[in-house]
Simulated scan of single mutants.
Amino acid sequence: MAQQPAGTSGTLGSKNRTIITISSFTAQGKIQELKTELNIGLTEGLTVNEIKEVLVHTYAYCGFPRSITGLQTFMQVIEERKAKGIRDNIGKQASPVAGNGSKYDRGKKILSDLTGTPPPAKLSGYSAFAPAIDTFLKEHLFADIFERDVLTYAQRELVTISVISAIGNADPMLRSHLNISLRAGWTAAQLEEFIAVITPTIDSEKAAAAKAVLMGL
């Protein structure tokens, strides 16, 4: 599968650092800052389809309004760059998904692979309280979205922890996805770099909270 958890080493790299800032500003609806980072992302080598995929992924964690606004902002950036004679790399599109079994079962397996824990024998907690959200989570987020191969699992987790940090007050979910990020291939040092990159994009309280969650892993 094209998006198996990717091993990484060294620093995050300029393209992945821009994924963080794009995701953060999208989640917060900071349009002017987002336009700047979208331009930087394209200059650093992110393809148009990679950035579109980042912006689409954000909706699962900050909602359609912010995600669609991000996409509309990106459309403006592309047109402005075209007017200047800049032709950006479109990049590959997502491959057709040829998974076996139901979307629910595929999503359940992907989630299990990401967390490193076997699926529970029966639903509990919020999943048992509202089974519909468990179905949406497995079928849509971890099947429909994570099965797409434009971004790696590691990059998708980078988008996820960026959005969660930017919206704030979701420490348990941030903790969970920071642990998933480690399993997806990021190192502890790279997650510390993540904190350094996202800190200037969010307020000091959210930055301190994100750092505290990482230090508590």
Rank of each mutant, 00 (worst) to 15 (best):
Q3Y: 14
Q3D: 15
P5K: 07
G10Y: 03
G10L: 07
T11E: 13
T21A: 07
F25G: 03
A27C: 13
E33R: 13
E33Q: 15
E33N: 15
E37Y: 12
E37W: 09
I40A: 14
E44P: 09
E50Y: 03
K52Q: 10
H57W: 01
Y59E: 04
A60L: 13
P65F: 04
P65H: 08
P65T: 14
R66G: 04
R66T: 08
T69N: 15
G70M: 04
T73M: 03
F74W: 03
F74G: 06
Q76N: 10
V77L: 03
E79H: 13
A83I: 13
A83V: 10
K84V: 03
G85I: 11
I86G: 02
Q93N: 13
A94H: 07
S95K: 11
A98Y: 11
G101S: 09
R106S: 05
L111S: 12
S112I: 06
D113R: 10
T115N: 08
P118N: 07
A121W: 00
A121T: 15
A121H: 13
K122W: 01
G125R: 08
Y126W: 12
S127L: 12
A128Y: 05
F129S: 10
P131Q: 04
P131H: 03
A132L: 09
L137A: 08
F142N: 04
F142H: 05
D144F: 04
F146T: 02
L151Y: 01
Y153C: 09
A154D: 03
L158S: 00
V159H: 02
V159S: 01
V159K: 05
T160D: 03
S165F: 00
N169Q: 13
D171V: 08
P172L: 09
S176T: 07
L178E: 02
L178D: 02
N179E: 05
A184V: 10
G185D: 06
W186D: 02
T187D: 08
E192W: 04
E193T: 10
A196W: 01
P200W: 00
T201P: 05
T201Y: 00
T201D: 14
S204L: 09
S204T: 15
E205F: 06
K206S: 01
A208F: 03
A212M: 08
V213R: 02
M215P: 04
M215S: 14
G216P: 06
L217E: 09
L217H: 07
L217W: 07
